[in-house]
Design a protein around this nucleic acid. Sequence first.
DNA 1: GAACCCCATACAATCGATTGCAAGAGCTTC
DNA 2: GAAGCTCTTGCAATCGATTGTATGGGGTTC
Lengths: 360, 360
Amino acid sequence: MVALRDVAAAAGVHPSTASRALNPAMRYLVADPVVARVQEVASRLGYRPNAVAMSLRTGRSRLIGALVPGIANPVFAPILAGAAEVLSSAGYALMVADPGDDNGRAAEFVEQLAARGADGLLLATASLRDDPALAACRARNIPAVLVNRGSEGMSSVVSDDRGGMALAVAHLLQLGHRRIALIAGPAQLSTGLRRSEGFEEALRAQGLAPDPALQEITAAYTREAGERAAARLIARHSDVTALSCANDLLALGAYDACRRAGLRIPEDISVTGHNDMPMVDLIEPPLTTVRIPHGEMGRQAAGLLLDRIGHGGGASDVVLPSALVVRGSTAAPRPTAPGAAPAARSARRRGPARPGHPEG
Amino acid sequence: MVALRDVAAAAGVHPSTASRALNPAMRYLVADPVVARVQEVASRLGYRPNAVAMSLRTGRSRLIGALVPGIANPVFAPILAGAAEVLSSAGYALMVADPGDDNGRAAEFVEQLAARGADGLLLATASLRDDPALAACRARNIPAVLVNRGSEGMSSVVSDDRGGMALAVAHLLQLGHRRIALIAGPAQLSTGLRRSEGFEEALRAQGLAPDPALQEITAAYTREAGERAAARLIARHSDVTALSCANDLLALGAYDACRRAGLRIPEDISVTGHNDMPMVDLIEPPLTTVRIPHGEMGRQAAGLLLDRIGHGGGASDVVLPSALVVRGSTAAPRPTAPGAAPAARSARRRGPARPGHPEG
DNA sequence: GAACCCCATACAATCGATTGCAAGAGCTTC
DNA sequence: GAAGCTCTTGCAATCGATTGTATGGGGTTC
């Protein structure tokens, strides 16, 4: 391995001179012919600066850590990809740690990333309150940005959870639905909480009072939890004509429950999701859902983090707009009168496709 | 930030003694009461060893780099997740770089990871021959393991591409199909090449000669490429009763082409995929495909890499078995006689569900 | 021609931990 | 009681790059 001292020796200068010659910001201190000679020697020898030594000396590593609950998660993976794109083009490397849902492990990972000299952290795992990972960041004074999660006093990039949910509910209301049930996400996650708020706001905006009996709060964003919640709602409230789900996986679970209960979507019951994750445009019926700009969230979060590392500014929050994507899982409710004609089945709406992913 | 020297000072010993007291492998050199005192002081002060300094001195970083073409890719994300799991429980951190399809960028990333002192590399991007990233690994003498890609003289973990493809074709043959077309993957990827070989092998095993006219080689594993290839095959060869695709995304493209051509799946034409990526059990009709143990591939690759770092053994190849998952996109071909009765439509097979992912 | 200044370069300390070697203390053994 | 041994601890070099300070040479100015 060729080190700076080798380059310096080969160029007949002191290592400090070689260092300055190779560093654009310090180059003005070195005479031009010497700069040229050093550069030539460096490239001839294939010199690559040792990033570890550089980190040790300067205290900066050009390394960003990311904490995600599930690398393969269809929501967080594109966020990570967006962030990686921005970071690598700024010369930063990305270290990924996946603590799953374990808050303790998350804090442990923060310590480890700190020990490795990470310049900043992207946190996609923060709970709403008392997040140990967040506390660890504050304690070690590491710049951090939250993604897809909000929390007080820390920069964050989120989508408009409240507004997105309201969009979905407004769509259902406009179709004529009045008894709309909510399958909510975990209340300790900001997405769960805010989407519930958006649900209630949209109802109130139409002068309707939210009925607590029509809300099921799930413990996790999983298909199974969605199925259980939907099954309970369907069993207890036969007058419900629409299920508004805080997340696509919950909606898929709702599909399962409806199928099992013999309810057709959207003829008998409408279903909406949230996130527009890959492939939901291809399921039967294609899911009406709220599209979130995942890649953009990752990019903005990375940008925000680099800003904070560079200029050290205060906390700022970015809220990205979400958009309703109407596909085939929503339709007008059937007339309530018994024996009424069933809704027309023809010409099911397929809706816009999602942008695709290449695969291996 | 509390350093080793602070711990040593507080414990009244020399830093070297503190170092030995805190290192299990060197602890035998230090008297027990001193060990206890140093440990107590270290934990009281919240001492965390500086991994950067440690790397610089020892030359080992406990850091593994991973190169993937698309972090959000439904194939590579679970591989990454599996690898991350094994690595982090072995005390290693994971650095991810995403060069996309750019071979030059991949080599550049290898250099960068080397400069950061990565102890080993996981390569999911290697082309079949003359991969610059691979060459860079060899040049810098960094242990590397290929995942989901094979290449001569380098350890690799792949699924049984040949056998998996043969499984799918055998299934079609057994259903009675004889004119089976292949939508092949890129020939410079080992998956593309081996799956094509598996396709031909399965035909020959039945005494059938592969017809080159029934093979379309795509330039990339994308839905669009699949659609184009399928459209061409359908237009030119009306006697084809089944499309065997080298990858699920290609199969989704084939769905698009069939839909556009007015062909029903599986009544008019059968389609098979490869990979069993998330959600393909939910599309209409549910896709018959070959399941690959992605997570296991990542875990095994990580394990293999750690072995090579530890004991420095030679190259070894792991081939994991794939399994056919029969769902609703395959059925017996219609009798060729014109005017024959269409295949029964009832009781469409839904097939086994995929294991789910939690979502955010 | 002496004083001064500036430019270019070298010197040496530093970041934090590890580790080969030296040295002191305490013990045994003859 | 001296030599030798073991056990424990300290010393100092080292990994590779950066950077504040010192120093030398060359030019300018009066």
